[in-house]
C-alpha cells in the first residue's frame, strides 16, 4: 500500500503539472476578486476566508478528473481491479495521493493568498486549518465522480457538476469555522469538528462507492 501511495504521488506530481493548474486557478480567483470588489482592505479581510475556500474548492473540483487519468489512458483499470487488495482501499490510497499532490499545495499556498487578502494571522491560521482538514473530503467524495466518468474523454466538467452539491457542506463548515476563529461570539470548534466528521465520512463513503462503480466500468 505504501508503494502504491508513493507511486501515485510520483505520477500525480508528474502528469502535465496537474497540481500546478489547480494552484494557478486558485491564484486566479484570489487575484480577480479584488478587481471585482475593489481594493478596500477591510472588505477583503472580511471576505478573505470565504474567498480562500471558494478558490480552493473550485480548484480542487477541476483537478478531479486526474484521479483515474493514468488508468484511463493506458487501460490499466483491469490490472487495478485484479489486485489482491480491495478496490475500495486502492481508491482510498489514490485519493489520498491525489490530495497530497493537488490539494495540499492549495493549503500551503493559502497563507500567501491570505496575506494578499489582508487577513489577520488568526484568520489565516484558521483558514489553513480548515482547508487542511476539508480539502481531503473533496478528493474522497470526488473519487466517486472521477470513477463514474472514467470512461469519458472530457469528464472534468461533469465531475464538477456532480460533486459540487456534495461538497457544499464542506464549504459551509469550513468557512463557518474560519470565521468562528475570528469573530467573538461565533464558535470555532463545533463547525471544525463537524468538518472533520464529514471528511472521515467521505473517506469511507467515497472509496466504497467509487470502487463499486469501477468494478463494473471495466466490464
Amino acid at each position: 500500500m505504501i508503494a502504491l501511495f508513493l507511486r501515485e504521488l510520483k505520477l500525480a506530481s508528474r502528469i502535465g503539472g496537474g497540481a500546478l493548474t489547480g494552484l494557478l486557478f486558485f491564484l486566479a480567483v484570489v487575484t480577480v476578486v479584488p478587481f471585482g470588489v475593489g481594493p478596500d482592505l477591510k472588505l477583503l479581510a472580511r471576505i478573505g476566508p470565504a474567498m480562500l475556500w471558494t478558490g480552493a474548492l473550485l480548484a480542487s473540483l477541476l483537478g478531479l478528473d486526474r484521479l483515474f487519468q493514468g488508468e484511463r489512458e493506458d487501460g490499466s483499470l483491469d490490472l487495478l481491479l485484479m489486485s489482491e487488495h480491495p478496490i475500495a482501499l486502492i481508491v482510498f490510497v489514490k485519493s489520498l495521493a491525489h490530495w497530497v499532490a493537488t490539494g495540499l499545495p492549495l493549503v500551503l499556498a493559502a497563507p500567501v493568498f491570505g496575506l494578499m487578502m489582508n487577513m489577520e494571522p488568526v484568520a489565516i491560521a484558521a483558514s489553513v486549518a480548515t482547508l487542511a482538514v476539508g480539502t481531503p473530503a473533496i478528493s474522497f467524495v470526488g473519487a466517486v465522480g472521477a470513477a463514474v466518468t472514467v470512461t469519458l474523454a472530457r469528464g472534468g466538467l461533469v465531475i464538477a457538476v456532480l460533486i459540487l452539491p456534495l461538497v457544499i457542506p464542506v464549504l459551509i463548515f469550513g468557512v463557518s469555522a474560519s470565521y468562528g476563529a475570528v469573530e467573538d461570539p461565533a464558535p470555532f470548534l463545533p463547525p471544525f469538528l463537524i468538518l472533520c466528521a464529514i471528511t472521515l465520512f467521505f473517506a469511507v463513503l467515497g472509496p466504497l462507492a467509487a470502487g463499486h462503480v469501477l468494478r463494473h466500468a471495466a466490464d
Binding site: 467524495v141 466517486v144 463514474v148 456532480l162 456534495l166 463513503l205 462507492a209 463499486h212 462503480v213 466500468a217
Partner: peptide
C-alpha cells in the same frame, strides 16, 4: 453510475 450517484 447513475444508481451510485443517485444514492450518494
Amino acid at each position: 453510475a447513475l444508481a451510485v450517484v443517485t444514492l450518494v
